[in-house]
C-alpha cells in the first residue's frame, strides 16, 4: 500500500514537471530529486565561492581605479551568487554550514576551472570572458529549471552576470589593441584557459552519469556536450574579432553540421583536477577553510551578544 502511494505521488510529481509546473519547497518530491538538487546547487554555490579566489588574487594589483572597482564588484557578486544558491539549498532542508564543511573536507566538488592559477592581469580578462561566458551558457537554461527557488536564484544570477562577461571581454579587447607585450599577455592567458573552459561543461555525455534523470526532472535542460558546442560556436567569432589565435589545430567550421568541430579534450587532465590534483586545489580549499576557522570567534561573539540582548529585553 505504502509503495503504491509513493508511485502515485511520483507519477503526479512527474506530471507536474512535464506540464512545466514549478516544484516549491514544501511540495512532495522524490528523495532522489531533493538529494540531486542539493548536490547540484551546492556544487554550484561552492564554485561561486571558490571562484572568488583566483580573481580576488588580483584585486590589490588591478591596473587602475576603474578596473579595481569593477573587479571588486564582480568578485563580490560571486559571493552574492553563492549566497543565493546556498539559500536555495536551505529551502530543501540542507544546512549551509554543513555543505560548506563538505567543501572544506574535500567531500564536495566545485568547478575545476578555479584550480588553475591566475598569473597575469590578462587572466582577469579571460576569466570574465570565457569562464563567466561558459557559466552563463550553463545557467541561462537553469532559469527555467523545475525547482522554483533554484530557478528564481538563477534568474537573479544571470541578470547580474551579464556584466561579468562584458568586463572580461573589454579587458581582452583593450589588451589586443595595446602594445606587443599586452597582446602576448592576452594570447598567453587565452592559451592557458581555453581548454579548461571547455572542460567546465563536464565529462562528455557518454561518461556523464547524472544527465538522463536530471533532464527528465528538468533540473538540467541540455547535455554537457550540447552546451559545450554552443559555447564554442559563440566564442570563436569573438576571439577572431579581437585577433586571438585559438589554440586548437583541429578547429574548423563544419558546414554540414552548422557547428565548429574542435579537438579532443584532455580528459586525463580534467579528472586529475577534479580528483584534487590541479595546480591550486589545495590552496583554494585551505584558504576557504582558514577564512571560516579564523572567523568562528566572530560568529560566536555575535551570537553571544544577541543572546544577551534577548535576556536584557526580557528582564
Amino acid at each position: 500500500m505504502k509503495e503504491q502511494n509513493i508511485s502515485i505521488l511520483e507519477q503526479r510529481f512527474q506530471e507536474k514537471i512535464d506540464n512545466d509546473i514549478k516544484i516549491e519547497p514544501r511540495d512532495w518530491m522524490p528523495d532522489n530529486y531533493r538529494q540531486t538538487l542539493i548536490r547540484q546547487i551546492s556544487q554550484h554555490a561552492h564554485s561561486e565561492i571558490v571562484g572568488m579566489l583566483p580573481e580576488g588574487n588580483w584585486i590589490t594589483r588591478a591596473p587602475n581605479l576603474r578596473r579595481k572597482a569593477v573587479l571588486l564588484a564582480k568578485v563580490q557578486d560571486e559571493a552574492g551568487h553563492g549566497l543565493y544558491l546556498y539559500s536555495a539549498t536551505e529551502t530543501l532542508g540542507a544546512d549551509r554550514e554543513e555543505l560548506i564543511d563538505d567543501l572544506h573536507s574535500g567531500v564536495a566538488k566545485y568547478s575545476s576551472i578555479f584550480n588553475y592559477p591566475t598569473v597575469t592581469w590578462a587572466d582577469m580578462g579571460v576569466i570574465g570572458w570565457l569562464v563567466d561566458g561558459a557559466a552563463i551558457m550553463n545557467q541561462v537554461p537553469l532559469c527555467r529549471c523545475s525547482y522554483g527557488p533554484y530557478a528564481r536564484a538563477m534568474v537573479r544570477v544571470c541578470k547580474e552576470e551579464s556584466f561579468h562577461q562584458r568586463q572580461g571581454f573589454e579587458i581582452m579587447t583593450n589588451l589586443m589593441k595595446g602594445t606587443s607585450e599586452q597582446k602576448a599577455m592576452a594570447q598567453d592567458a587565452f592559451n592557458r584557459f581555453w581548454w579548461p573552459s571547455l572542460m567546465m561543461f563536464g565529462p562528455s555525455d557518454a561518461d556523464s552519469k547524472h544527465t538522463e534523470q536530471s533532464v527528465k526532472w528538468k533540473i538540467k535542460r541540455h547535455t554537457n556536450d550540447e552546451l559545450r558546442q554552443m559555447f564554442v560556436d559563440a566564442t570563436i567569432p569573438q576571439a577572431e574579432l579581437i585577433g586571438l589565435t585559438i589554440p586548437d589545430k583541429d578547429l574548423k567550421w563544419n558546414e554540414e553540421r552548422g557547428h565548429y568541430d574542435f579537438g579532443e579534450i584532455n580528459w586525463d587532465e580534467f579528472w586529475q583536477v577534479v580528483k584534487g590534483n590541479g595546480p591550486c586545489n589545495k590552496d583554494r580549499v585551505d584558504t576557504r577553510r582558514r577564512a571560516k576557522e579564523e572567523g568562528m570567534w566572530v560568529i560566536e561573539a555575535a551570537n553571544a551578544y544577541a543572546e544577551k540582548i534577548k535576556v536584557r529585553k526580557a528582564s
Binding site: 549566497l83 543565493y84 539559500s87 536551505e90 529551502t91 549551509r96 528564481r152 536564484a153 560568529i299 555575535a302 551570537n303 551578544y305 544577541a306 540582548i309
Partner: peptide, 11 residues
C-alpha cells in the same frame, strides 16, 4: 527575495 544568516535583526 531570499534568505540570509544574521545574529540579530539589525544585522
Amino acid at each position: 527575495v531570499g534568505s540570509l544568516r544574521a545574529a540579530d535583526a539589525e544585522m
